[in-house]
Simulated scan of single mutants.
Amino acid sequence: MLAERLGWKLLDVQIIQLVAQKLGISRAVAQSHDEQVEGFAQRLFEATQYFMPPVALSEVIGPSVNDLAYSHALGQVLRTAVDMGHVVIVGRASQVVLATDRSVMHVRIVAPLPQRIVYVMRREGLDAKAAGERIRLKEHRRHQSIKEQYGWDDNDAHLYDIIINTGILDLHAAVELVCLALSKKARKLMAPADHLGPAWGLKPYPSPPNEIH
């Protein structure tokens, strides 16, 4: 929804897998893509080849790939996608890999578990038990993967520019909020470091506060 609203390319799990396969770091079979998505993936692959040294590429080619090699190659893909610009990246530890890039806005969407279960039931045609198990398993795997490969906790709020709770707000409202935050952050891209943060432009209290909370 966000990619459609912005008119940007969507880089999701399937495209990441496709690029990884082209780089020779995964045996996963790429799912079918329309011409527009396939063209973007091909350009991303070609750009990644250009930026990645041949020795680094040869190190990750093979029938099996260790976590370090895969993380390195994935990082190359994500950073190249950012350099190409105007892309919405879904997951793949991008909140950690691209944490220091000010041109990237990191968004997390959350919701209470009962509502997440209803969401998965409707989207995937599962019963409540299966939907709950799928959510818990996927969340556990993602958390463990980021913890083991990068040493970060994906629940750390400081990894994100904005966290939106869709317990009441629907996804259309979430898209609106992301677009607003994106425009606000874009205005700060060229601002010096001392012009960033909650203290910038803030006037001192007229008198010392009685207590600090």
Score class of each variant (00 low, 15 high):
61 I>D: 09
97 V>G: 09
134 R>Y: 01
18 L>D: 14
102 R>F: 09
106 H>N: 08
58 S>H: 09
11 L>P: 00
141 R>T: 05
28 A>T: 09
51 F>P: 06
27 R>S: 15
43 R>F: 10
1 M>L: 04
69 A>V: 09
193 A>G: 03
38 E>A: 15
184 K>H: 08
97 V>A: 07
48 T>F: 06
35 E>K: 06
96 V>T: 11
119 Y>L: 15
130 A>L: 06
205 Y>R: 02
144 Q>K: 13
201 G>M: 11
199 A>H: 06
15 I>E: 13
127 D>I: 02
207 S>V: 06
16 I>Q: 05
34 D>N: 08
51 F>N: 12
198 P>M: 13
119 Y>C: 11
8 W>S: 14
18 L>R: 15
130 A>Q: 06
190 M>V: 03
138 K>E: 06
136 R>K: 04
40 F>P: 02
120 V>A: 07
169 L>E: 03
156 D>Y: 09
33 H>N: 14
55 V>K: 13
160 Y>K: 03
110 V>Y: 02
90 V>R: 05
117 I>L: 01
25 I>Q: 11
57 L>P: 12
93 A>L: 07
91 G>L: 01
212 I>M: 07
118 V>A: 08
116 R>C: 04
149 Q>F: 09
156 D>A: 09
63 P>Y: 14
100 T>H: 15
122 R>V: 03
8 W>G: 05
106 H>M: 11
185 K>A: 11
155 N>Q: 07
44 L>R: 04
147 K>F: 12
94 S>L: 02
140 H>C: 04
82 V>E: 00
140 H>M: 13
212 I>H: 10
166 T>A: 11
125 G>W: 01
164 I>M: 10
21 Q>E: 14
178 V>M: 02
87 V>Q: 00
59 E>A: 15
78 L>C: 10
57 L>I: 10
1 M>C: 07
33 H>F: 07
113 L>T: 09
144 Q>H: 13
132 G>I: 03
153 D>L: 03
8 W>V: 14
201 G>W: 07
153 D>A: 00
82 V>Y: 03
81 A>F: 08
6 L>E: 01
107 V>K: 10
30 A>K: 13
187 R>I: 01
195 H>V: 00
52 M>H: 04
198 P>L: 15
182 L>G: 02
54 P>Y: 12
23 L>K: 09
139 E>Y: 00
177 L>W: 03
183 S>D: 04
116 R>P: 05
110 V>F: 00
194 D>V: 05
8 W>Q: 06
97 V>M: 08
32 S>I: 06
207 S>Y: 07
183 S>W: 00
115 Q>W: 01
113 L>K: 12
118 V>H: 04
123 R>E: 08
78 L>W: 05
199 A>T: 14
80 T>Y: 03
97 V>C: 04
125 G>D: 04
163 I>S: 14
193 A>N: 11
49 Q>C: 15
11 L>F: 03
175 V>S: 01
191 A>L: 12
112 P>V: 02
184 K>A: 11
162 I>D: 01
181 A>C: 02
123 R>F: 02
24 G>N: 13
152 W>E: 12
65 V>N: 15
144 Q>E: 14
62 G>W: 08
70 Y>E: 15
180 L>R: 01
143 H>I: 05
171 L>M: 11
47 A>C: 06
207 S>R: 11
146 I>H: 01
45 F>L: 14
151 G>Q: 03
137 L>E: 15
